[in-house]
Design a protein around this nucleic acid. Structure first.
Lengths: 257, 257
DNA sequence: CTTTTATTCCGTTAAATATACGGAATAGTA
DNA sequence: TACTATTCCGTATATTTAACGGAATAAAAG
C-alpha cells in the first residue's frame, strides 16, 4: 500500500472497490540474480508482496501500475495478470484484525469492519532491473526490500503461494514470448541475455543453441561494436529490434527452452 | 444468477462480496459442435454469459461451481480460471441501472446503490457434454440457451470479449493438457475423440498422426470391443486411463496440435 | 614479449520429432 | 455380388532439437 492507502481507504471508503484488491509480485533481475520485492508491515514478523486497493475510477491494470509505481518509482513496467485468488481463509493468519490494524494506522476501527472480510486478490507480476529501482517504503511498512527467489522469509497469508504461482506463470510466459527489453540496457551482449534466461528459468541453457534460436527469431540484431569486459575477449553488442520484439509479444515467439 | 440471486443480494447484501463476481463461460460440445451457454435477461435484447455473486463463505471456485450447477444441474465440472476483468466502463451499456433493475426484480433500488459500481469479474470456463445438460433458466431470464461459438447473438457489456478470451485460453490449455474426460462417454472411438479435438481447435487434424500422438501419451487405452455404427466398419472402443490422464492434467501432456 | 587465464564465439553431426500421404479392411446396403 | 462410407494402419521425408569441442581474443602475470 502506498503511503496513505490505509488512511485513505478508511477516510474515503466510497472511492475504492470492496472485497477485491491487486497484489503485485515484483520480480527484480540484476547480475544473474532473480529477486522479489517484499515488504514487512510494522509490528509484524511476516512479509507480504506489494499490493493495494482499487479505486472506482481505475481499471485493475491501472491499479497495479499505480501501486507498483508507489513502491518502485517506475512507470510503464511490463505487467502480466496471472491469476485471481479468493477463498474465505486466505487472509486468516492472526494478523489481519482490528487490533493490529489500529496498531498500524492509529485509527480505531470496529471489529466487524468490511476490510476484514475476505478479499479476492487479482495477481499481477512484473519484471524490472532491480538496480534501477529506488524502493519507496510505505509509512506502515517496517521494511521493503528484495529477497532472493529461492530464499524467501516467512510470508503472510497465502503470499508464498501467490509468489510461486507468479513464478510458474513467468516461466510459462518466457517460453512463448520474448522478455528482456525492460531488463537489459539498450545495448547488451549475448552472454548477458543468456544469463538472464538461465536465471529466470533456473536452469542452464546451451550457449550455442541459445544464440542460434534467439537470432532466428529476429528480435535481436548484432551491432558492429564490442564491449570491454576486462581481461577477456570483447563480446559483441546487440540490441532489440523493437518491432520484431513487439510482434513477438503479440503473436508469440517460440522460444521454448 | 440463480433463481433468487438478485433478490438475495438485495435482501442479504452482507452475505456477499461486493464489487467482485464470477462469470462462467460454459462451453458445450456435442456431435462435432462447440457451443456456449448464454442467457437473456427479461426485457433486454442482449445476452450474457452465466455469472453470479460470491458468498462470503465460499471460495471463488466454489462460487463458480455453485453458479454453474444452478444453470446446468451438473456438479464436478472441469473448471479453469482464465482471467479477471476490471475497469470502470466494462458494464456500462445503458442496461445496468436502477430502472432496469427495478423492472427486473420488482424491487425499488436507489440510483447510487453499490451494485451499480463496477464489478471485477473473475472469469472461469468449463466444458460439458451439452446433451447431458438440463438447462435451468433463472426467474429473471427470458431465455437461456446454447449458441454456436461462431454465431453468437449481440452480447451485453464486455461479454463478447470474455468469451473470446475464454476460447483462447481453452485452445491454449488443450495444447498442454488432456481434455475429453468430461465430454465423451466412458467408452469412445478414435473418430469421436478426433472430432472433439478438431471441433475445439477449429481446424482439421491428420487422423493418423493424431492417433499416434494420443496413444503415445498413454492417456487412452484400446479395448477389445468395437462399436456398431451402422453401414460402416466398426471402430474400436477406447477408454481413458484415468491415472495417466490426471498425471497429464498435473504435469502437462504435450499434445500441441 | 611470452605465457597464462578466463571468456567469447562459432559449426557439424546425430537423434528425435513432426509432417505428409495412399491403400487395404470392414459393415452394412443396394 | 458389388457398392459406399468409414475405419485403420505404416513408411518415407523433412524439420527441429540436442549434443558437443576447439579456435580466437583481451588483458594480466611472469
Amino acid at each position: 500500500m502506498k503511503q496513505s492507502d490505509i488512511d485513505d481507504i478508511l477516510i474515503n471508503p466510497d472511492q475504492y472497490l470492496r472485497n477485491v484488491l491487486v497484489d503485485n509480485v515484483i520480480f527484480g533481475y540484476h547480475n544473474k540474480e532473480l529477486k522479489v520485492l517484499l515488504q514487512q508491515p510494522i509490528a509484524l514478523d511476516k512479509w507480504t508482496v506489494t499490493g493495494g486497493y482499487i479505486k472506482k475510477t481505475e481499471s485493475i491494470e491501472e491499479a497495479a501500475n499505480r501501486i507498483a509505481y508507489s513502491r518502485t518509482g517506475l512507470k510503464n513496467l511490463f505487467f502480466q495478470q496471472f491469476r485471481a485468488f479468493g477463498n474465505p481463509t486466505r487472509s486468516i493468519d492472526g494478523s489481519k484484525n482490528a487490533k493490529n490494524f489500529t496498531k498500524l494506522s492509529g485509527i480505531e476501527v470496529p471489529d466487524d469492519l468490511w476490510i476484514f472480510d475476505y478479499f479476492v486478490s487479482v495477481g499481477f507480476y512484473t519484471l524490472t532491473e532491480f538496480s534501477m529501482v529506488k524502493i519507496e517504503k510505505g509509512v506502515y511498512e517496517a521494511e521493503c526490500q528484495w529477497w532472493p527467489i529461492d530464499d524467501l522469509p516467512a510470508l503472510m497469508f497465502d503470499h508464498e503461494h501467490i509468489i510461486s504461482e507468479a513464478l510458474k506463470a513467468l516461466r510459462l510466459h518466457i517460453a512463448h514470448y520474448p522478455i528482456g527489453y525492460e531488463l537489459l540496457s539498450e545495448k547488451f551482449t549475448l552472454p548477458e541475455i543468456h544469463s538472464l534466461y538461465e536465471t529466470i528459468l533456473g536452469k542452464p541453457l546451451d550457449d550455442r543453441n541459445f544464440a542460434k534460436r534467439l537470432m532466428a527469431t529476429g528480435i535481436i540484431v548484432k551491432l558492429n561494436e564490442t564491449k570491454r569486459i576486462g581481461a577477456h575477449r570483447s563480446p559483441f553488442l546487440y540490441r532489440f529490434d523493437k518491432e520484431k520484439y513487439n510482434e513477438g509479444l503479440e503473436n508469440g515467439a517460440a522460444l521454448a527452452f
